[in-house]
């Protein structure tokens, strides 16, 4: 059924998706908050940048990340001067790419949830002399919980489903950058259709179950 390399790809995929989702919740919260509250003229531009990965083909993102993170690119120059080496072909590189690639799937549900709260609960909290942080933890976060659930599930699932970007910057290294989607592609290309089927059917089942769970647990939070 599944070989050792298949299992290693599955393990790696879940590691990548977990780390990416955690990072995205941390990074995405202030971005979503700013987008939800600001009256700045930059709102449209920043919102558009966050949404870019939805419309750009992964080949474009992968190609630019490869060039930018390479030894001659701006990101590559920075990481080298920090003594980190270059990011392509590393697990850390995949995490950076995935954070960028899955950003809108986390930011947008949280932003929608923040916007749905409106001004009133915040004003009430302020009249009760709650500090802004207190308001955020005691009022905003509980009210935005459906948005966070949607963001977590979509961010995780979208990273698991990532292919083009990983293919272009990963280098297909076992245990480091060979994730399930790449492994399936390899099986298909090598005409190993039986093994491809096991993994591919597993992906379909996993994706269906995770979305089913989301829509059952969170019937109101399905907007993205």
């Amino acid at each position: 059924m599944l070989s050792d390399t298949d299992w290693s790809a599955i393990r790696l995929t879940f590691e990548l998706a977990s780390i990416t989702t955690l990072l995205l919740l941390v990074i995405g919260t202030p971005i979503a908050w700013w987008l939800a509250r600001t009256r700045s003229a930059w709102k449209g531009a920043i919102g558009a940048v966050v949404a870019l990965p939805i419309v750009l083909p992964p080949t474009v993102i992968g190609f630019y990340l490869l060039v930018a993170m390479g030894p001659n690119g701006p990101v590559g120059q920075l990481t080298q001067s920090l003594g980190l080496g270059v990011l392509p072909f590393t697990f850390a590189g995949l995490v950076v790419a995935s954070v960028f690639y899955s950003l809108p799937f986390v930011v947008q549900p949280i932003q929608n949830a923040f916007e749905a709260i409106g001004e009133r609960p915040l004003e009430v909290a302020a009249t009760l002399r709650a500090s802004p942080f207190d308001t955020f933890y005691s009022v905003v976060l509980p009210l935005a919980r459906p948005g966070y659930l949607t963001a977590t599930v979509l961010g995780f699932a979208h990273t698991v489903g990532e292919f083009g970007v990983v293919l272009m910057i990963g280098g297909n290294i076992p245990d480091k950058t060979r994730v399930v989607s790449v492994q399936i592609y390899d099986h298909v290309e090598a005409m190993e259709y039986a093994q491809a089927h096991w993994l591919a059917a597993g992906m379909v089942a996993f994706s269906f179950l995770i979305l089913l769970a989301l829509y059952t647990l969170n019937p109101t939070g399905r907007r993205t």
Partner: peptide
């Protein structure tokens, strides 16, 4: 130290961008 391209065109790309 291997990094693998899915085909020879991608392998070329890894080297030409200096990443390998």
């Amino acid at each position: 130290k291997f990094v693998q391209g899915e085909n020879i065109a991608q392998t070329y790309q890894f080297v030409s961008t200096g990443n390998a």
